[in-house]
Write a protein that binds this DNA or RNA. Structure first.
Lengths: 139, 139
DNA sequence: CAGTATCCTCATTGATACTG
DNA sequence: CAGTATCAATGAGGATACTG
C-alpha cells in the first residue's frame, strides 16, 4: 500500500465539509466513532478475531450490537468478514488495509485518553469557581 | 507544558482498560467521539466561538444538543466557558490546554476521513462475492 | 444572546429466545 | 458457533416556548 505519509488536510484542502449538514463523511465518522465501533477496531488492529472472541474481549457488548457494528464497518469496507463453511460455523473478522489506517487513528485517540485519564479526572471542575470568584485563585 | 511527544501506550502500558466494562475512559471517549462533540472540538480548535457562532457553523445541531455537548466537554475539562456579564449576554467557548490535545487527535481522524472519503465510498462491497466464491481466490 | 424547560418522536441499546 | 428476531427500556434528538 502507498505511504502518503500523514494525510492532514490542514494545509490547503478546504476543511469544513464535515460541518455541512449533509456531508457523507459524517456517516463514516459516526461508524468509526460509534460506541462499539471504536473498540472493535482497536481489538481487530491487534489481530483477526472470531465473533465470540470479540464478544468476550469487548466487555458489555451484546450480540446484537456487535453484529450491527460489524455490519456497518464491513459495509464501509473497514472490516473483512470471512465465513468458513464448517460445522460448527466459524467466521473471522479482520481489518482491510483501509480499515487498518482508520483503526490506527482511532487507537491514537483511545490511547491518548487512557494515558491521560488521570490528568482528565484529576481536574477540578472550575465551573462554579470560574464565575463566582475567578479573581483571587492562584490557579 | 510538557512535550512527551506521542503518548502511545503501545509500548508497555497495559492496554485494554477500555475493553473493560467499567473503565472510566469509556465515558470520556464517548464524549469526545459523540456526534456533536467531534464537530465542536474541531471548530474550537480553530478559535474560540460564541454559542450562536457554534450553532451556525455546525450544520444541523440544535440548541439543546449543542448546550448539552458543551456541558459534557466542559465537565471533562476540555472546554472553557467564559461568561461576560453584559447585556445582551456574551459567552465564549474555547479549548483548555488538555482539550486542545484531545481535539488534535479527533481532528486527525476527521481529516483522515475527509481526505479518504472517496476511497472509502468508491469501494465495492465484497460482501456477496466473498461468501459466494471464496474458494477459487488465491486468498 | 444564551440559554433552560417541556414535550414529543424515534433511534439505539440490551435481554431473551430462537435458528441454520 | 454465529448469528437473527422480538420486545422492552433508555437515551438521543428536535420543536417550541420561555427567562435572565
Amino acid at each position: 500500500m502507498e505511504m502518503d505519509g500523514e494525510h492532514t488536510l490542514s494545509d490547503q484542502v478546504r476543511r469544513g465539509e464535515l460541518l455541512n449538514r449533509n456531508c457523507p463523511s459524517r456517516d463514516v465518522l459516526r461508524h468509526l466513532t460509534s460506541r462499539w465501533g471504536v473498540l472493535v477496531l482497536i481489538v481487530l488492529l491487534e489481530r483477526g478475531h472470531r465473533f465470540s472472541e470479540l464478544r468476550r474481549r469487548i466487555g458489555g457488548v451484546s450480540e446484537k450490537m456487535l453484529a450491527q457494528t460489524l455490519q456497518a464497518l464491513e459495509a464501509d469496507g473497514f472490516v473483512n468478514r470471512i465465513s468458513h463453511p464448517v460445522v460448527p460455523p466459524h467466521v473471522d473478522y479482520s481489518l482491510t488495509p483501509i480499515g487498518k489506517e482508520a483503526a490506527l487513528k482511532v487507537r491514537e485517540l483511545a490511547d491518548w485518553i487512557e494515558v491521560n485519564i488521570g490528568r482528565i479526572q484529576g481536574q477540578v471542575s472550575t465551573k462554579q469557581v470560574a464565575t463566582a470568584e475567578m479573581s483571587r485563585m492562584g490557579e
